[in-house]
Amino acid sequence: MKKITIYLLIGVLSIGSLFTSCESVKNTNKTQRGAAIGAVAGGVLGAVLGNNIGKGGNGAIGAVLGGVIGGVAGGVIGNKMDKQAREIQTAIPGAQVERVGEGIRLVLGENSVRFDTNKSTLTAAAKANLDKLVPVFQSYADTDIVIYGYTDITGKPEYNLTLSEQRAISVEKYLESKGLNMSRFKMVGMGIADPIATNDTPEGRSQNRRVEFAITANEKMVEDAKKEAGN
C-alpha cells in the first residue's frame, strides 16, 4: 500500500505540474485547475480506493465510491460532499467520516450504532445517534445512500450474512420512520467480510458489529452540478 501511495502521489504531483505550467491554464482559477487535475487523476484514485479503502480494504464500498464525474462538475459535487461530511462529523463526533472520491464513507460503530451479538434490533443509543443524522440527510436530499450491515465472526457465515442484512434493514426502516425517502436507500448484508478490528477479542468483535454508509450524488445532483459548471 505504501508503494502504491508513493507512486500515486508522484503521478498526481506530476499531473499538477503539467497543468500549472501550461499557459492556457494560468488564467483559470484555483477551483478550475483543481477540477481539471481531478478529472485526470480521478480514475487512478478510484481504482486504488476501490481496493484499499479503510482498514479492512473495503472493496464493496470502494466500488460504489470509486466512480468519478470529474471536471468542474465533480468539483461542485465534491464541495457539497465536503460540507455534508463536516455536518455529519459535527452531529456524531464518534462516527468515522471519510471523504472518498466524490462521495462519503460513514462508519457507525460501537460508539454510535451498536448491535448486540446475534441481534439486529436498534438500541436506544443507536436510535438517538440516527436521529442526529436525519436532519443532515434531509438537507442533502439529492444523494443516494447504500447501507452496509456487518457482523463479527461468531456463528456460521451463512447466518451472519442474513443477520448483517437485517441490521442494514433495521437502520433503513428507522430512518424511513423519521421521514426519509426509502427510494434513496439500498441495503446490503456483508456478513463477516471486511472486519475493521480483530475478531479475537470481545472489543474487536464489538467494533465489527456495525453499519457503514456509502453516500453518493444522485442523478439530479449530477445534472445540477453540470449545469452549474456550464456543461
Score class of each variant (00 low, 15 high):
22 C>K: 12
142 D>Y: 15
165 E>A: 11
34 G>S: 10
61 I>E: 06
137 F>G: 00
50 G>E: 07
110 E>F: 05
76 V>M: 02
32 Q>N: 02
11 G>I: 12
148 Y>D: 06
152 D>N: 11
141 A>K: 11
67 G>Q: 11
151 T>I: 09
99 R>Q: 06
196 I>A: 00
79 N>D: 05
93 P>R: 10
177 S>P: 13
92 I>T: 07
110 E>P: 07
121 T>P: 01
60 A>Q: 04
160 N>M: 02
93 P>D: 01
74 G>L: 05
96 Q>N: 13
62 G>K: 07
35 A>H: 07
185 F>W: 12
162 T>L: 06
14 S>T: 15
127 K>M: 11
126 A>D: 01
116 D>F: 12
50 G>D: 00
3 K>Y: 15
132 K>Q: 11
217 A>M: 09
57 G>V: 13
212 E>Y: 08
149 G>S: 10
39 A>Y: 14
97 V>Y: 05
156 K>M: 06
88 I>D: 00
206 S>R: 10
182 M>P: 03
101 G>A: 03
188 V>R: 11
125 A>Y: 07
37 I>F: 11
159 Y>S: 07
153 I>L: 01
137 F>K: 02
41 A>W: 14
13 L>S: 12
63 A>I: 15
85 A>C: 07
61 I>C: 05
83 K>D: 12
132 K>R: 15
80 K>N: 11
181 N>Q: 07
126 A>N: 04
41 A>P: 10
12 V>F: 07
179 G>A: 09
127 K>I: 14
227 K>I: 06
24 S>A: 11
27 N>C: 08
167 R>G: 07
19 F>H: 06
129 N>W: 06
116 D>C: 02
145 I>T: 06
11 G>Y: 07
222 V>G: 02
42 G>K: 05
194 D>Q: 06
163 L>K: 08
231 N>Y: 10
209 R>D: 02
165 E>I: 05
39 A>P: 01
85 A>D: 04
10 I>C: 01
65 L>R: 03
210 R>C: 04
113 V>W: 04
147 I>Y: 09
184 R>D: 01
190 M>N: 09
194 D>R: 04
125 A>T: 15
122 L>G: 01
24 S>F: 12
163 L>G: 06
100 V>M: 00
26 K>I: 12
38 G>C: 01
14 S>G: 15
4 I>L: 14
153 I>C: 00
65 L>V: 13
122 L>W: 07
149 G>C: 09
229 A>H: 08
137 F>L: 15
33 R>V: 15
107 V>S: 13
146 V>G: 01
101 G>K: 04
105 R>M: 13
63 A>G: 14
118 N>Q: 03
90 T>F: 04
67 G>V: 14
60 A>K: 05
58 N>M: 09
149 G>F: 09
164 S>A: 03
81 M>F: 10
150 Y>I: 09
85 A>K: 09
216 T>F: 07
205 R>Y: 02
12 V>I: 15
28 T>A: 00
156 K>T: 12
227 K>H: 09
185 F>K: 06
192 I>D: 01
112 S>N: 10
197 A>H: 05
228 E>D: 02
41 A>F: 13
102 E>Y: 08
30 K>H: 12
55 K>M: 08
132 K>C: 03
118 N>V: 02
